[in-house]
């Protein structure tokens, strides 16, 4: 690992000012991607700004839905997850499991137990690995990413493989979304890395809007799938998802599988995601 300067940030504003002070600085949260990348000398930040101990960036809050209009059976709560909340904390939050089991189940299957004890949701989305799980969830749930300077919709946040709308000196504080009426995640992991070969997150809001996002498969990162969204809007069922003809254009081909294989997996994972919802 190249030399670096370690800073412990006292709060989110302090982290943002430290980050803005050096052009080659990086935020260190759980470090489960950044530290291995630095060990491989694929990243060489001059400064690391540790945000893992900042209390205001940790934890899950669930705000009850406002009683407006027709009372829906499920969903509508406002869920906020702090950027430095670990995968383990998300996976084991009982209130969150009741409000949105798709996201606790997703967190419980990221990496391995030691990685989940340290890795964070903010780190996952800031890195925007094209095979990461959380970007798919936030995109399908229509989440908002709250930073030290503004709020960004998930649609605008994920701008391509390993890239986001974050500016220099901008730090993610939390993400929030409305609990869906139904949601599910189907993931086919690469056995060695536990990353998604293909992951499909399906979500239906309390207003009936359906959003479907795909991770692991796109040649430019996470994306929404219009064909699956329209099929599931007219008929929310596993058979409806399985009946969609998923094309291979724009999909990734690598040693794990070619684009046609991934296209087929998208249909299968979408079906399983709806089954689990």
């Amino acid at each position: 690992m190249y030399t670096t300067k370690y800073h412990k940030a006292s709060d989110a504003a302090n982290a943002a000012s430290l980050l803005g002070a050096s052009p080659e600085a990086k935020i260190l949260a759980g470090g489960q991607t950044l530290i291995p990348t630095m060990k491989q000398r694929l990243a060489a930040p001059t400064d690391l700004i540790d945000i893992s101990g900042i209390a205001e960036l940790r934890g899950v809050t669930i705000e009850a839905r406002k009683k407006l209009g027709v009372l829906k059976a499920k969903g509508g709560e406002t869920i906020t997850i702090g950027a430095a909340t670990t995968h383990y904390e998300v996976a084991n939050n009982a209130d969150l499991a009741a409000a949105c089991p798709a996201i606790t189940g997703l967190a419980a299957n990221i990496g391995d137990p030691a990685v989940r004890h340290r890795g964070t949701i903010g780190g996952s989305i800031a890195n925007n690995d094209p095979a990461a799980d959380y970007p798919a969830a936030l995109l399908a749930l229509g989440a908002t990413i709250h930073t030290t300077s503004r709020d960004i919709s998930a649609d605008d946040f994920f701008t391509g493989m390993f890239s986001t709308a974050l500016n220099d000196g901008e730090v993610i504080k939390s993400v929030s979304f409305q609990a869906p009426a139904a949601a599910g995640y189907g993931k086919f992991p690469v056995p060695a890395s536990r990353y998604a070969m293909v992951g499909v997150f399906v979500a239906k809001s309390i207003d009936g809007d359906v959003r479907v996002s795909v991770t692991g498969a796109g040649d430019d990162g996470v994306f929404r799938h219009a064909g699956l969204e329209s099929a599931l809007t007219s008929d929310w069922s596993p058979a409806s998802a399985a009946g969609v003809n998923v094309g291979a254009e724009g999909l990734l081909s690598d040693i794990h599988g070619n684009a046609a294989y991934r296209a087929n997996l998208i249909g299968v994972m979408a079906k399983r995601a709806v089954e689990s919802a």
Partner: peptide, 14 residues
């Protein structure tokens, strides 16, 4: 909690 000590800075364990 179990963690990978090769994937964590000593300073972060302060």
């Amino acid at each position: 909690q179990a963690m990978k000590s090769c994937t964590m800075l000593a300073a972060a364990a302060e």
